[in-house]
Amino acid sequence: MNWGFAATAFGASAVEFVEAAVIVVAAAAMASWGPALWGSLAAAGVLAAVTAILGETLLHLVPLGLLRGIIGALLLLFGVKWLAKATYRIGIAYKPHHGLKEMGGAKVAFAAAFNGVLLEGAEVVFIILALGATGRALGSAIVGAAVALVLVATATGAARRLLNNVPEIALKYAVGIMLTSFGTLWLGEAVGVPWWGSDASVIWLALGNLVVSGAIALFLRRGQSVPSQSTATGVQA
């Protein structure tokens, strides 16, 4: 066992697993844990199959930048819809009658979890393969990444219980903010944005989205030009 390589794989993989876990929790908040977990398992299955078939040649064959761009665009499309809708609903103090499922649906939750886990999982596979190839320490890298996976999965399981106590509209709002922030980060990276602090930029993006959408919700609430549900148009709320 090469402990240096194991620790490097652990640190790098833990960051990717945390990002994947945030997307999976957000996807679970859209509908339920079922489609979010199935989406995660499907992505893990695809990655396992592709890795088993291609092995180290995966490093040269899969364009990670393109994959990041496609998945970022999809998450951004879901995220913008969710954030705008949640902002509008907070703005008019709307109370949902049919629970969480009315806004998202199992298919969107499955797709969001699948995309998030596929991209982050691919990055973990790349980290393991790169460490394995350069340092001839594939086993140590796998052990480091596996420990990170177990720790992050355990923490996510604990977060699952906490989420049951969060109000529905706040959960939807948080989902919109996280999907929009990750989507902006990944699509931005794909079109050439050199983000400050790399992936850590997702933190200021999320805070920025929170501030701007909060201001819009406040504007809608104070404006009093907001119609009742029966007179709101255009886009179905």
Binding site: L76, A84, T87, Y88, N209, S213, I216
Partner: peptide
């Protein structure tokens, strides 16, 4: 992106 979200939320709230 924040502008798109803001305009979208405003579109939902505008009167028919």
């Amino acid at each position: 992106v924040a502008t798109i979200v803001s305009v979208d939320a405003w579109r939902m709230a505008r009167p028919a």
